[in-house]
């Protein structure tokens, strides 16, 4: 029985390019779905696809450990937390958007045009950021190494984490502990007299 060596398959040019373009198209499409889907829960589930695609890219880049850690932490852990948060908070933003659109459609044409320019401003900023970064990438001549990553790269990572990078590693563990305690403190249910209706917000008091 013949076993296909994934490492060799990946390092040959054409197969790598095809796999890369497939995964890249998937990741770009799904990430646009994440930011523009009207249904926020569906956007949360599309996020799993984006993280899975990026984990596939890590496999193509011969980073097996990071790819599997990505699946564990992002595609399962963080997405689960996001979806649970979406279910606990019940956003009624769709109605508000419809109201705003009704207000917008009654405006005069010039105001509508100016409004669309204002709404397009984040897109302009993101566009300029992308093109600037791309021009920087394209004009730079990186000193690329011809060798590939060795098969013992997980051993190299482990050795580096416990010797040269042991201090940042410990700090990361302290950070995680602090974040855990902080998250529990913030999300802990407060003592509210009337549990059915949320407390009156500060916004209604200040306006």
């Amino acid at each position: 029985m013949e076993f296909v060596n994934v490492q060799e398959l990946v390092s040959t040019g054409v197969a790598e390019a095809l796999a890369f373009y497939f995964i890249a198209a998937l990741a770009i499409t799904l990430s646009i779905g994440v930011i523009s889907d009207k249904n926020v829960i569906r956007a949360g589930f599309l996020l799993i696809g984006v993280f899975g695609g990026i984990s596939g890219l890590f496999f193509l880049l011969q980073a097996q450990f990071i790819a599997l850690a990505q699946v564990m932490i992002y595609a399962v852990g963080i997405t689960l937390v996001v979806v649970i948060a979406l279910m606990l908070t019940n956003p009624r933003l769709q109605n508000e958007e419809a109201e705003e659109e009704a207000i917008a459609s009654s405006e005069p044409a010039l105001l509508k045009f100016l409004d669309s320019i204002r709404n397009g401003f984040p897109g302009l900023v993101a566009w300029i950021a992308f093109v600037t970064v791309y021009m920087a990438i394209r004009s730079e001549h990186w000193e690329q190494s011809t060798q590939t990553i060795g098969e013992d790269n997980i051993a190299v990572i482990g050795r580096a984490l416990t010797t040269d990078y042991s201090l940042p590693f410990e700090f990361a563990s302290v950070l995680l502990l602090a974040a855990l305690i902080g998250a529990i403190m913030l999300a802990k249910a407060e003592k509210v007299e009337d549990t059915d209706t949320p407390r009156e917000g500060i916004e209604s008091g200040s306006n």
């Binding site: 850690a69 932490i73 992002y74 937390v81 908070t89 974040a179 998250a183 913030l186 999300a187």
Partner: peptide, 17 residues
Amino acid sequence: LTVAAAEAAVGLAIVLS
């Protein structure tokens, strides 16, 4: 990855609060 996990936990707790 570590910082992202911490950020997600604290950020979502703040949103919940």
